[in-house]
Design a protein around this nucleic acid. Structure first.
Lengths: 219, 219
DNA sequence: TTAAAATTAAGTATTTATACTTAGTTTTGT
DNA sequence: ACAAAACTAAGTATAAATACTTAATTTTAA
């Protein structure tokens, strides 16, 4: 099942896309945002597989959303929709780290194909985008500025539920006392979980922990 | 003392500028980069007051370097040198957030004046640049495309150079021992700086520190 | 249903951080 | 040249993290 979050400021557009997607048995639209900031909040909250995002949005536009996702290495694929049938944002989207780019004029088939492709880790760019990319590439723009998304390797360790919870809090730079309070357990227990965590991830301090967590996209 | 880092891919140019600058008792060239990426690394490492940067450079050009510095709000003034006697990059430099812009044909006097101006927080743009800026402004180009430097609210605290260095390392989650080693000072000194930092920023743990640092764009 | 896995938490020793203060030395700005 | 600011680093006491081990419960999966 591919969990999708939609971000578009037009309810009608969202409803249309939702209808289209939910005809597919393997895709579920689990939440919707009407602006960029909300989109970021929702992906943190819902951990969807794919974010479908319009470029023109209040608060924060789609390119900025994708940039933020790429920068903070969030574990979600991004499919950018350009609602005004032009390719002016293709390069920007690629540079921002988008996994896919579609124009408004795309067919239903192309749209579904794009969702499946990005969900499975592949890229999908509409129409004759390769031409645009190549022309930019030879000019050196893409090669210089694109931020390629790192591939997720299978984890060489498995964390328990509690450990994941504690990892989250540790990565928020909380100390064991606060973690213990928050989870209503003894400080000693929090310590143990933290210790086991560090051991499983083979790190010996916070810096290494955060690096490892980023490497395996646990944050 | 004004600490300067030079970034230019021509050793000869660097040597010339260095000679010129080091005649001044209040200016020290503390490091040199031969491309844009290196320049960024060096300013992180050395925390100079001023970066003098050529536009044409391999890896990353001068405009991109300045853009990156502006975006990440690094505490360094930027003086852009255009080595081909034209003013075509003035607007781009301003948009990128440069503090100064000089042409190759500038006199020694003008050059030194520019360095001092930007070091003291003022702007310096060569020749009749105001004309260029104005003509662009009325055409709407600057207004439309400029990346305005986000207004930094005046900090309710002031950090010394050393404290900024230590802040950077603390934000990298390094411990005092490692910081001390990296900066070649005693662990106790690192502790003091860290302590003073936390007090100035009115925070009591790492989590609050990072939040505050984000709030005031120190990271 | 029962063994394995997970969660809980205490004990102990060592290292590191926190919260200061004091104070000598160096750098700076005027 | 001289005071102010910055940098350095020591001392002291307390709190927290690290690095384990042991072991009692509770949950979960075959």
């Amino acid at each position: 099942m591919i969990d999708v979050v939609l971000a578009d400021d037009h309810v009608l557009v969202r409803d249309g896309i939702k209808a289209l997607l939910e005809d597919q048995s393997d895709i579920a639209v689990i939440d919707e945002a009407s602006n960029g900031k909300e989109a970021l909040q929702l992906i943190s909250k819902n951990k969807p597989d794919v974010l479908i995002v319009d470029i023109r949005m209040p608060e924060m536009n789609g390119i900025e959303v994708v940039t933020e996702i790429t920068k903070s290495n969030k574990d979600v694929k991004t499919l950018v929709l350009s609602m005004h049938d032009s390719e002016e944002y293709v390069v920007q989207s690629i540079q921002a780290g988008a996994d896919g780019y579609l124009l408004k004029g795309s067919s239903k088939e192309e749209f579904l194909k794009a969702v499946h492709k990005v969900a499975s880790g592949e890229k999908y760019f509409t129409g004759d985008v390769s031409t645009i990319i190549m022309s930019n590439f030879v000019n050196g723009n893409v090669a210089k500025t694109s931020v390629p998304k790192t591939k997720i390797k299978p984890l060489p360790f498995k964390l328990t539920k509690r450990e994941k919870q504690i990892l989250d809090l540790v990565l928020e730079l909380k100390n064991n006392k606060d973690i213990a309070e928050e989870l209503q357990i003894s400080k000693r227990t929090a310590e143990v979980h933290r210790f086991n965590l560090m051991k499983k991830l083979e790190v010996k301090n916070l810096m290494e922990l955060t690096n490892k967590a980023k490497e395996f996209q646990l944050m």
